[in-house]
Design a protein around this nucleic acid. Structure first.
Lengths: 339, 339
DNA sequence: GTGAAAGCGCTAACAC
DNA sequence: GTGTTAGCGCTTTCAC
């Protein structure tokens, strides 16, 4: 085993400053009742020794680490990645480290990570699950740790939630397609156990109904929100006796699969089939033509959630809040007037 | 403040099993010299109480947490993201959590994170910096913590390194362009302080020299490896009196900027200009035409580095190793026979 | 206003 | 083979 050089402890500082470790602790915690002179001595000693408090010891003593847990369903999804960055930015600014957990669409992995976070005494947790399984998250609430949910709601969890208006956003996009003259609009969604996907489908259906168009069950498909499934579901739609004129993709990974399918069949966008999708990605504007999308305020979701969490950690006992953030609608070349 | 319910400690287990906490510790550490009968009693108690060792207390006691630090230059870069996933997978399998730090191309941020990691007693660190600044990383080595560098080498740091053969890979790609008949090949690279970028440029130059082509200084540009800079550098090349027939992009973010620039000027690939690039991204095969790229074995870099790090943590004192992994060359539609 | 001392949960040296 | 105990570095009563 490598031998780690001993680091400078609070005792070293106390000794150099000629006070007790209790006093050093008080000074660093910005507590009152410390003489200004003593305070200066302590601060000088801290600087001289480059003292950095041992976060582990503090965690053990306080039974709470200055760490925020963050569980996302898939870090490779740019939507979640933007959230990760936001949470990190805010957390760091408040002296918290972030324990990032990539559940990777697996409930067992999420559970394992949450147990790990609890064992690390995290101060609070932000969870952005993609599945309906709620067990892991509830464990945190049971453990008395503040929890903020993002991206989707959870029926059995009464806790702060930050989401977007999925239904309204989907309604807007599909309505736009209808206004462009498309009447036969296919749609692919992620698992319907997830509130997000249910709401997006509802928005899709309501748009059709509002414009007196039929909701053909054959035009709506759902599956695991990954690229391969997007590819397959799109192939199914294209194989229909009467294939759709336009396609609504309910998630950015499904979108990638769908585009791959259209590409492989040499279908031109929007001439052969129009496309509108949920989620902005860095390649959506690079495409030829660029993709019409609903952009979620991912970064803002992250910052809002983190601020809520920090409030709870500080002891805020208000009843749970649900914040609904606005999406942005970017109309680009992937849909145009039909025919 | 919320009051956290008391968690079950090693003492509770000891009491239920009718042994001392030391024995429980021994059983859980898989130490020998424990009667099978006692062992069973302890394990039963552990299961019954759902005991989970407090990782914080263990860290404090051992002066070393079961946490691996991972510092990447930019998590939004798919290359680093793949590494993140790899490190996580291996670490978790060995009972380690991962403390992910996104340096975000900022040395100060990297330094701050590294201080934080040291204060958290991480067992070891994997660093994938994008800048030449080496200070933060050296702090770990000084602190006696095992360090594995990935993606690039660091002259003043004698420590394990996992990289790819950037020079050879660039040589291969540029040679391919030359074989296709392109003689005037522009190139854009990230900062030349970074070994990776220097090597890629060397490969580019050697390919030209080997094929008896001139190395025109005007055709080579470098800057911060971000999309905006890629855009700008490409515009500069296109603005030359005699613009390049082909473009070699030395990094995936530069590539995105370059493609955006070509797109904005309505240049067709490969008819107007051919493109070859470093790094596979999820959109490179989605493009029309798909992009010819050198794919780095990002996941393998991550797994290799993590395995090295775990060996060092276990006390391996071998001299530092440098592993060079192979890249893959995917020839696609973005370059074709010239004229 | 400051110090002494206990103790967070765990491991490892030392008894027996 | 198992128990007793000290102590990791910190915060926080409780004295004075």
């Amino acid at each position: 085993m490598r031998n780690k050089p001993l680091s400078v402890t609070i005792k070293d500082v106390a000794q150099l400053a000629g006070v007790s470790s209790a006093t050093v602790s008080r000074v660093l915690a910005h507590q009152p009742h410390v003489t200004e002179k003593v305070r200066q001595h302590v601060l000088n000693a801290v600087n001289e020794l480059h003292y950095q408090p041992n976060r582990v010891a503090r965690s053990l003593r306080l039974q709470r680490a200055n760490i925020l847990g963050l569980v996302v369903a898939d870090v490779q999804n740019p939507f979640f990645l933007a959230i990760v960055r936001a949470v990190e930015d805010i957390a760091i600014a408040h002296g918290y480290a972030v324990f990032l957990c990539n559940a990777d669409e697996q409930v067992e992995k999420a559970k394992m990570y949450i147990d790990l976070m609890l064992a690390e005494n995290v101060a609070g947790v932000i969870i952005a699950p993609s599945r309906a399984e709620n067990d892991p998250c509830l464990a945190c609430i049971e453990a008395g740790i503040p929890v903020v949910l993002i991206d989707r709601t959870l029926e059995d969890a009464q806790t702060d939630t930050v989401i977007v208006d999925n239904c309204q956003s989907a309604f807007r996009l599909v309505s736009h397609l209808i206004d462009d003259g498309y009447t036969r609009i296919g749609a692919i969604f992620g698992d319907l156990q997830v509130s997000t996907n249910r709401e997006r489908r509802t928005g899709y259906e309501q748009a059709l109904l509002t414009h007196n168009l039929p909701c053909a069950a054959e035009l709506v498909r759902q599956g695991k929100p990954i690229q391969e499934v997007g590819y397959q579901l799109t192939c199914e739609l294209l194989g229909l006796p009467e294939p759709p004129q336009a396609l609504f993709c309910g998630n950015n990974l499904l979108t990638k699969g769908a585009l791959q399918a259209l590409h492989d069949r040499h279908l031109r966008i929007p001439d052969d089939i129009a496309v509108g999708a949920f989620d902005e990605s860095d390649w959506t504007s690079l495409m030829q033509p660029a993709l019409t999308v609903i952009a979620q305020p991912a970064y803002e979701i992250g910052t809002t959630a983190t601020e809520f969490l920090l409030q709870r950690i500080r002891g805020d006992e208000r009843p749970p809040r649900e914040v609904v953030l606005n999406t942005a609608f970017h109309i680009r070349g992937s849909c145009a007037h039909h025919r």
